[in-house]
């Protein structure tokens, strides 16, 4: 029963994925209004030559803030998990 449910739901899901792969824009020609603006104005607005770094730290700084917070939380979690184990051994 469980295997049948897994097979049915997975085949529906993968069917959607493959259909999306054919219905999406052709590979190599993406819609790009926002990115064209960023490529045009990176140097005059941020003074940086690297558009990717300009996007990370300037246009989308909130993403990087969240990412740094996630990394901090993960490090705190890993250190906490293994430190508790070490104390119990002694």
């Amino acid at each position: 029963m469980r295997k049948i449910a897994i097979a049915v739901s997975l085949s529906i899901f993968i069917g959607f994925l493959i259909a999306t792969a054919f219905l999406i824009h052709p590979f190599g020609y993406p819609p790009s209004e926002m990115d064209d603006y960023i490529i045009e104005n990176t140097q005059s607005e941020t003074g940086a030559n690297n558009a990717v770094t300009a996007v990370i730290f300037d246009y989308r700084g909130f993403d990087t803030l969240g990412e740094a917070t996630i990394l901090f939380t993960a490090v705190t979690g890993v250190v906490m998990l293994f430190r508790a184990k070490k104390k119990r051994e002694k």
Partner: peptide
């Protein structure tokens, strides 16, 4: 396009941490 590359960079670090 630069924006998907920036998001990928963020995604890689988050994937490693998780």
């Amino acid at each position: 396009l630069p924006v998907p590359q920036a998001l990928t960079l963020t995604s890689i670090v988050i994937a490693v941490a998780c």
